[in-house]
Design a binder for these strands. Sequence first.
DNA 1: ATCGTAAAACAGAACGCTTGGTCTGTTCAA
DNA 2: TTGAACAGACCAAGCGTTCTGTTTTACGAT
Lengths: 231, 231
Amino acid sequence: MCTGTEDQPNVTSAIKDPMRGNPARVARTRGKIFDAVITNLDELGYSECSINRVQTLAGVSRGALTHHFPSKEEMMVKTLEHLLAPVRGTAPPDGEANLLRPSRDCDCLQEQLHRLWRRVINTREGRALMEILVAARTDKALSARITPSLWAYNDDFNRNIAHLYSAAEGHEDELALLWSICRSFMRGLHTQAPYERDPEIITKMVDLFGRIMAPHLSARASQGDTDEEPI
Amino acid sequence: MCTGTEDQPNVTSAIKDPMRGNPARVARTRGKIFDAVITNLDELGYSECSINRVQTLAGVSRGALTHHFPSKEEMMVKTLEHLLAPVRGTAPPDGEANLLRPSRDCDCLQEQLHRLWRRVINTREGRALMEILVAARTDKALSARITPSLWAYNDDFNRNIAHLYSAAEGHEDELALLWSICRSFMRGLHTQAPYERDPEIITKMVDLFGRIMAPHLSARASQGDTDEEPI
DNA sequence: ATCGTAAAACAGAACGCTTGGTCTGTTCAA
DNA sequence: TTGAACAGACCAAGCGTTCTGTTTTACGAT
């Protein structure tokens, strides 16, 4: 392969069509694979999320899988970007939007954090993301591939919350830091929740955490509740 | 084997000595293995912490390893208990003690949290513990084995901090919950620190978190600075 | 004191199985 | 007719477990 056959100059009209035959079929296949990866990561963990298992669960052949994702690393990188997409700047691929927006004006921070935990962090997607992050810590190649995506995600995240939340007066510069703390706390909850004797403890933790953070973080009065894409 | 030969009733004095030949030699071998497991978990992660790697790094034979830990699950369970031991009620095996105690009376919570992060959480041992916790979430067998240890650890932890810290008045019952929040936050930091553009951000996060928690959590005046085992 | 012996402690080969990657072949759409 | 999309076989390497040997140690009988 790649033995340097020069491209024919007299081909009728197509110079070289890099995007030829890929209708929504590609999107469907990749979607099935993403879904299988996420489910496997959530239920079996990173170490058991093998190519074979993904292939079986997604109901696609080995060839299809390797065609879209030449290596396991590639599969994980693309899955992570797929998971990060809903929060990123541009239009989310589908499904849930405005994940961070406080849904009501008279909504206290506690309820917002509860919703964040239930609807974003403690979900299949949230747990799958966690698995990739933990695995990448000790996998330098994977880490190098995902770090730029994570940085871009972080920038978009900070840009978005700046419109929706504000820090206490006198500490306006701490908004991003405050949300980083919230995220860290919630991610840590992932390693605590499965081993808690009483599941109610997690709820109480989120509740108390919200009460503690409330004086430092509040939702902005949402100017105009139109459907201008918030995240 | 086990073909039911009846035990001789006229054996002179030894009924059956289950603890025969185990001098400090066993402790040395197991120590080397624990150390290798911890290092591998920290540097390669759970999925790459294979028996072969542990055996090589520890410098012991396959037979020695399987003798002490008949299965990988057993190895991980015992390693976790080894990691939890320093905080547990009875004497720590060796090395670091009083991990939680505020080292000085006039010590603010921020500094105590910084020390907790640097000296306990963000260490080889802390990261190895994290790897096991994350892996066990999706490994039901492992999870079932470690859950009792984690519960006991939790109880000891809460018992110990009750002597060292107190919650704000009016909320004395929230002490355990407050420390659970601290632990969750710090564990979450594990998945944030490796990807942070500026390492200083982590320090700032711990700092701000400490400032926010300070009104709710304070060290007790340490009555008697003698060397009565604090943890 | 020394010996015999049984079990603990260790050594290492071998097993069946799964892994991720590569390869050749087939179908489909432009 | 071309290349993207898919199908499935194949491979060496590594996995965790099991197995049979060998060495070391403690201890009661001599």
